[in-house]
Amino acid sequence: MIKVRFHGRGGQGMKTSSRILGTAAFLSGFFVQDFPIYGAERRGAPVVAFTIISKEPILERGYIFDPNILLISDETLLLDKQTDPTKGMSKESIVFINSNKNEDYFKEKIGAKVIVEDLTKIALEVLGRPILSTLIAGVAAKLVGIEQKYLEEAVKEELEQIGANEEMIRKNILAATIGYNKVQEVKIEQTESLEPEVKVVEVEYNDPEISTPVISFVANSYLKKTGTWRVFKPIIKYQKCKSCRLCYVYCPESAIKWENNFPVIDYENCKGCLICVQECPLKAIEIVREGE
């Protein structure tokens, strides 16, 4: 049995990745289960998806705690305490990270078999958008040893289902193939389940100030630094800016402050949606890929 866990951000296409891998494995004759987890949807918010591939019927439900393969579509997720994408990983697990940094950078931090490729760059070249679903699916399919023809068939099937046109399907099959050829098939060590031993404890009565769904600490959302969600960074070119305030009004995160009659982006909270770029009538906001 191979358990694959995908970590990404809303909008990158991780659910589609897990489904493409699932369909490709199904077409190859395996038992399959795939499953996404996302809360109240928001572009950029952490998303997890899973694919389980097996020669026997699968006795699993829900979150995979002990993945054999982890695919992380966005290195900034490694900093997200709540998501904690490497949780449950063993020494035998294979970790794939989409990043423009090199493998050594992650090796000591993660301490497992790490593979790093800059898929965002390829996505921008091939698809013109930083959507990674088919690239990551390609990587995953190769790692688990699925034949390329089943991958291609699966991409077609899944994209048709979400209403993609022929051109998009063609480009995405190309993207999947590039992902597929970037990596080598890996040997999956069948380790024992790492589900941690837990202790059942008693839950005593607490006073209602604690034991009811009440938040007394107001205005706390700024503590959630959505700045780590960015793939692209908006940069205001003040020579061009005429202080029209449109970006300030449209920013959905209120991440643009108004100071000395000019907009100032709060990068700790700007999630990189680029709505400001879209709205600026003077094209005064430029886009730079994060980490460049």
């Binding site: 941690p196 837990v198 202790k199 059942v200 404890v201 008693e202 839950v203 604690i210 009440v214 938040i215 007394s216 600490f217 706390n220 503590l223």
Partner: peptide, 21 residues
């Protein structure tokens, strides 16, 4: 008996602490 683990209790406590600053 509620099936609730030490880890569940810890998580709940952390979130409640955050809710109350």
């Amino acid at each position: 008996i509620l099936l609730f683990t030490e880890e569940d209790k810890k998580t709940s406590k952390t979130l409640i602490d955050i809710a109350h600053g």
